[in-house]
Design a protein around this nucleic acid. Structure first.
Lengths: 170, 170
DNA sequence: ACACAAGCGGACTGGGCAGTCCACTTCGTG
DNA sequence: CACGAAGTGGACTGCCCAGTCCGCTTGTGT
């Protein structure tokens, strides 16, 4: 696995970008042909870099997870635990809303670090009395994801507000 | 369009039942072959009754909508507007959780009557001060559907509880 | 009992998809 | 420049699916 040739590297970059775009628009169901076309390469090139379509999806997901992780770490730096969680949640939701189809790609890999960071944010918010204690980090993830993904683009903010209100301690 | 022959009627019934089962398990993506097999019928028979797969999905959805409508009317008879809405929501959620895949089938047709009944329940609950006034009936539908459909089978109750708490007036 | 329409299902078509192959092109090095 | 390795893409395979066709079967009215 020696370093890639310069042209191959360029094509790989274009491929990942095109894939991110296409998956964002149509979800991971989008065809490999569509992605290759948008990247301006033959679809055989896709399979030279990624053994299967799933590997491509995973690669795109991994790239996007890095963005989310940055958000999480930024939030962890916030000393106000309640604010830390909500800012993280709103940030993630914003991304998911903008690139709807990517949510499914991301949730297929789910890096451990991101999970741990999110769990920590939840734990702290609960300790600070800003979040009901009968929910798990997974519950929060599922609820936020659900609120954003199954709402029209002009209503997801409202829906997220409702969910966040529901997550406040009684 | 004369009345169906007795055997044809029987097959049609089996077909709709099988379709409901299969769609409930695998969603509307399930193949027509799978349904025909479970109904003990050739798949050509499906297309003699329904011009396209979508028509079959619609037919199954319509049948299930009748159940939901019954629930809605029962709830409308409840003089306590807050209770009426929550009992309706819990009832619907229970059905959706039991037959996950059917949710997608149903939301493809969405009978007007059901919509109107649900909207009335929402309106009444808002008038009674039991529901926040900055949400529309569509918001409630989306939130409840989302909470149930994207939660593991042992957590959807908890998630629905959170959503319902979030829907209470502040 | 018989005739015939209504119903039937297996075989077929066509389209879309992931994944493979191979003759050709392009890059990088000596 | 020239040459081998790395890279490429169009053509190909095999699979799954919705929808069609047609010769055979079965229910029903007389």
């Amino acid at each position: 696995m020696s370093p890639l040739r310069a042209d191959a590297e360029r094509n790989l970059r274009r491929l990942l970008d095109a894939a991110a775009e296409v998956f964002a628009e149509h979800g991971p169901e989008a065809s490999v042909d569509e992605i290759a076309r948008r990247a301006g390469v033959g679809h055989a090139t896709v399979f030279r870099r990624f053994a299967t379509k799933d590997e491509l999806i995973a690669a795109v997901g991994q790239e996007r997870i890095r963005t989310l992780l940055a958000l999480a770490e930024q939030a962890l730096a916030n000393p106000d635990a309640g604010q830390a969680l909500t800012s993280f949640v709103w940030g993630i939701a914003e991304l998911h809303a903008r690139e709807r189809g990517l949510h499914e790609c991301i949730s297929r890999c789910e890096g451990q670090e991101l999970h741990r960071a999110a769990a920590e944010l939840v734990r702290r918010a609960q300790a600070a009395g800003e979040l009901r204690t009968d929910v798990t980090p997974e519950d929060v993830e599922a609820l936020v994801g659900a609120a954003v993904k199954s709402s029209p683009p002009d209503r997801w903010r409202q829906h997220l507000t409702v969910v966040l209100d529901g997550l406040k301690p009684r």
